[in-house]
């Protein structure tokens, strides 16, 4: 059995009075595709943001790829991580945001080459080659010289996926990647994510409201409620015969909103 690539132990995250993650225990195996579902405010996105080091945690330990994320092994046990350690850990992960967050002042190509060149130290040629391959993967080879403002939302999100992949992460975090899109543009983004899931060894962690999609691509679905995992299991099990009342209510509300 492999070591899990992500392991959260008793993670607590508070925003002032509000507890967003409440002693969360959570593991992900290498190569596993995990979907997180749940009502808004249940802490789904916060898990991804904690993993990407965009939010600090208040308690607990997170391990990524065998090393503590927010801590370093010091002389007297775990100590808060230095910026150098955080930078090393960030290297393992890539993130796709709900609102794409492309750099508006750069062409699509430069969005993809900037970090590989200046963070990874690739040569301009290597970075460009890598970017072109990825643009082909997401079907946007003809948009290399366009600016983000010239693209549709779906195209921008595909560029954002390519941009994250250009850093060759082991883990990809998708934070509601289709929630900001017009309905007719959702499909093209989901197709890209799905082909990634099927053809690559990447570990993927996805927060989404697209239940059909979650059912098709995930190895495991986690239902978040009030900062914890209330129920998890293979998609068939969660979607067809959820054990918990809250899960049933949530799925019913999402799948049959008019009732």
């Amino acid at each position: 059995m492999n070591e899990p690539i992500i392991r959260c132990e008793g993670v607590v995250k508070r925003f002032g009075e509000l507890t967003v993650l409440d002693h969360l225990d959570f593991t992900v195996d290498p190569g596993e595709k995990v979907t997180i579902i749940g009502p808004s405010g249940s802490g789904k996105s916060t898990v991804l943001r904690v993993l990407m080091t965009l939010e600090r945690i208040n308690e607990g330990v997170v391990y990524v790829d065998g090393e503590p994320l927010w801590h370093e092994q010091g002389a007297k046990g775990l100590e808060p991580a230095s910026e150098a350690h955080l930078r090393k850990m960030r290297q393992k992960m890539g993130m796709v945001f709900q609102h794409f967050n492309l750099f508006p002042h750069m062409t699509v190509l430069r969005n993809l080459t900037e970090a590989p060149r200046y963070v990874l130290g690739l040569s301009p040629r290597e970075a460009r080659q890598r970017a072109e391959e990825l643009l082909e993967l997401v079907g946007l080879s003809d948009k290399a010289e366009a600016f983000p403002s010239q693209l549709s939302g779906g195209q921008q999100q595909r560029v954002a996926i390519a941009r994250a992949l250009a850093m060759r992460p082991k883990i990809m975090l998708f934070d509601e990647p289709t929630s900001a899109l017009d309905p007719e543009l959702v499909g093209e983004v989901l197709r890209v994510i799905r082909s990634l899931a099927e053809e690559h060894e990447l570990t993927m962690l996805l927060v989404t409201h697209e239940m059909d999609f979650a059912r098709r691509i995930s190895d495991r679905v986690c239902f978040f409620d009030q900062g914890r995992i209330l129920e998890q299991g293979p998609p068939e099990e969660i979607f067809s015969s959820p054990k918990e009342q809250r899960t049933r209510e949530f799925l019913h509300a999402v799948l049959h909103p008019e009732e």
Binding site: Q91, M93, N101, A115
Partner: peptide
């Protein structure tokens, strides 16, 4: 703020973020 988050997710240093991402915008 989201631009700073995207830069962090791509592992830019603080200085790089300031000069390459924030300042040109």
């Amino acid at each position: 703020r989201t631009q700073y988050e995207a830069a962090k997710a791509l592992n830019f240093t603080r200085t790089q973020t300031l000069w390459r991402i924030a300042l040109p915008q």
